[in-house]
C-alpha cells in the first residue's frame, strides 16, 4: 500500500528523520514504536503531507505521492488522526463528522443558493451516516455536544469517527490511545479491529502502550534516531537486541525482561 524510500526530514542541522525506509502492506494494522524523539510523528507528518520531506520518496499503490498536500492525499484515501486531538471546537460532534465527506454539493457556494433541495437530501443522508458512526463508537448521546467540551478520550474517538465517514484506504493513527482511560481504549481497539476486518481499512499506528500494540498490530516497526531499526511481530521486536538497546535508559528493557521472566 505505502512504500517509503530513504526519507529524510531535516530542520536546519537537526535530522528528525534520517533515511527511513519501510512499507505498509494492504490489510495490515502496522504498529510504529520507538523511544521519544525517534522521529515517528515527523515521519507521519512527512507521509501525510503536513511537512515536505527534505529528500526521499513516498508511494501509494505504486504512485508517487511525495509532498502532496494533505487535502489531495485525503482524496486518495489516505487519512490521519493527530497526537493532540484536532477537533473543530465550536462545532457539534455531529457537524464534526458531517463536514468530512468531500465533493458535497453544499460545499459549492453557488449550490447553496440554487440547489437547496439537493443539499437538504444530501444533508439528511450525511446526518444518518454520522449517527451510525456515533452509535458504532458508542457515543450517540454526545451527538449535539460542542466538540470542544468533550474529554480527551472522547475527542480521540471523534477523530477516529471522522475517518469512518468516507471509504478510507489507509488511516494513520498518531497515539490514538494516549491519555485515554481503559474502557474507552477497549472501545477504540475494538473499533480499529472491526474496521480492519469488516471494511478492509489498512492502519498504521504510533503507540506507546505495548499491550495495545500486541493486541492489534502485526507487523510492528521500531524506529530510533530517525531510522527504522527493526520490523517483525511484536514478540520478535521485544526480543530484538537493537530495540532493547534503543530503549535503554527508559526502563523498558527491565520491563521487557520482567515480562519475559514471567
Amino acid at each position: 500500500m505505502i512504500v517509503v524510500e530513504d526519507l529524510h526530514m531535516h530542520f536546519g542541522g537537526f535530522r528528525a528523520v534520517d533515511g527511513a525506509s519501510l512499507s505498509i502492506e494492504t490489510g495490515t494494522i502496522t504498529g510504529l514504536i520507538g523511544p521519544n524523539g525517534a522521529g515517528k510523528t515527523t515521519l507521519f507528518n512527512a507521509i501525510a503531507g503536513d511537512l515536505k520531506p527534505t529528500s526521499g520518496r513516498v508511494t501509494m499503490s505504486g504512485e508517487d505521492i511525495t509532498g502532496l498536500p494533505p487535502h489531495a492525499l485525503f482524496g486518495r484515501g489516505l487519512l490521519r488522526t493527530f497526537q493532540v486531538a484536532h477537533e473543530f471546537a465550536t462545532m457539534t460532534v455531529r457537524e464534526n463528522l458531517m463536514m468530512v465527506p468531500g465533493h458535497q454539493a453544499g460545499e459549492t457556494l453557488w449550490n447553496v443558493w440554487t440547489a437547496r433541495g439537493r443539499i437538504a437530501s444530501e444533508e439528511k443522508a450525511l446526518a444518518r451516516k454520522a449517527d451510525e458512526v456515533l452509535e458504532f463508537l458508542t457515543i450517540s448521546h454526545l451527538a449535539d455536544e460542542r466538540a470542544g467540551n468533550l474529554s480527551g478520550g472522547q475527542k480521540k474517538l471523534l477523530e477516529l469517527g471522522r475517518t469512518m465517514m468516507v471509504e478510507a484506504k489507509i488511516v494513520f493513527l498518531d497515539e490514538v490511545g494516549a491519555g485515554v482511560n481503559r474502557t474507552l481504549l477497549r472501545t477504540i481497539g475494538d473499533a480499529i479491529a472491526e474496521l480492519n476486518r469488516e471494511r478492509g481499512y489498512t492502519f498504521c499506528m504510533i503507540e506507546h502502550d505495548m499491550e495495545f500494540i500486541g493486541r492489534l498490530c502485526d507487523p510492528v516497526i521500531c524506529m530510533a534516531e530517525g531510522k527504522v531499526l527493526a520490523e517483525g511481530t511484536i514478540d520478535e521486536i521485544k526480543a530484538d537486541e537493537r530495540v532493547i538497546e534503543a530503549y535503554l535508559g527508559t526502563g523498558l528493557k527491565n520491563k521487557i525482561s520482567q515480562e519475559a521472566a514471567q
Binding site: D50, P70, H71, F82, H86, E87, F88, M99, V166
Partner: peptide, 12 residues
C-alpha cells in the same frame, strides 16, 4: 477552528 485538521479532512 482548525486549519490543519480541515486540511487533513480533505478541504483545500
Amino acid at each position: 477552528d482548525n486549519e490543519t485538521a480541515a486540511e487533513a479532512m480533505g478541504k483545500n
